[in-house]
Write a protein that binds this DNA or RNA. Structure first.
Lengths: 111, 111
DNA sequence: TAAGTTTATCGCAAATTTACGATTAATATT
DNA sequence: AATATTAATCGTAAATTTGCGATAAACTTA
């Protein structure tokens, strides 16, 4: 991909929020997060039974959520127990909340 | 792309939220939204001056934000005035807030 | 030790995203 | 009518995403 000569600068917040948003940008990942969140306790690989997708594909989506910091995986071979990463979840929640509140400043008449 | 034989079903909420998240998943689109939101009133095309990217690229990103419903464009040739779509902005805000709150149910010991 | 279970990773193909320059469209100005 | 301004669209190239099946890795159980 050709890149701009003068590179666009982003704030840390912009980078982090974009990364989290990207993790949330696929419906199956939202579904996975909701399933993990709805358990009274953490969860393992019933995901493969609940979601009709190849095991390798679900594993890939889990990896994306892990890398975004939204979930944690506790290895307990041969199983892995996934759950919400509460600390980062809270951070993400705050980030999005602040972002959406920020537009309240705008007092235009057009909508 | 090969598709799964049994198609995964998503709720309307999952689809909508994923689409909004996708619109928010690029730092330059976050920057654009912040710039639009920070204006006391609406905004025209200074974006090209504020963001060192090709005009066509910025136009593409604006289109993505338009299609996600996050902004509105008031055509006033040869200029176009963009601003936050407050109605959908509120909807998106609620969607994300509810989503993040939902994980509070999870009482696992692992995080 | 051999077979089974669970999950990650590899290799691949198709689709989508991202960015650019060039061009077009629509209107205002000279 | 000719030129200038602003923004969208087209065409293209490279990168990334998404999905699958096959295989590998790690540990249990027979």
């Amino acid at each position: 991909m050709r890149r701009t000569l003068s590179v666009v600068e982003y704030s840390g917040e912009e980078e982090v929020m974009a990364a989290v948003a990207k993790a949330l940008s696929h419906p199956v990942r939202l579904k996975i997060l909701k399933l993990l969140a709805s358990q009274t306790c953490c969860f393992t690989g019933e995901l493969t039974e609940l979601i009709p997708m190849a095991q390798s594909t679900i594993s890939q989506h889990l990896k994306a959520l892990l890398e975004a910091g939204l979930i944690r995986g506790e290895i307990n071979p041969p199983k892995v127990k996934y759950c919400i990463n509460k600390e980062n979840w809270l951070k993400a929640s705050t980030l999005f909340a602040r972002f959406f509140i920020s537009s309240k400043k705008c007092h235009c008449d057009c909508g």
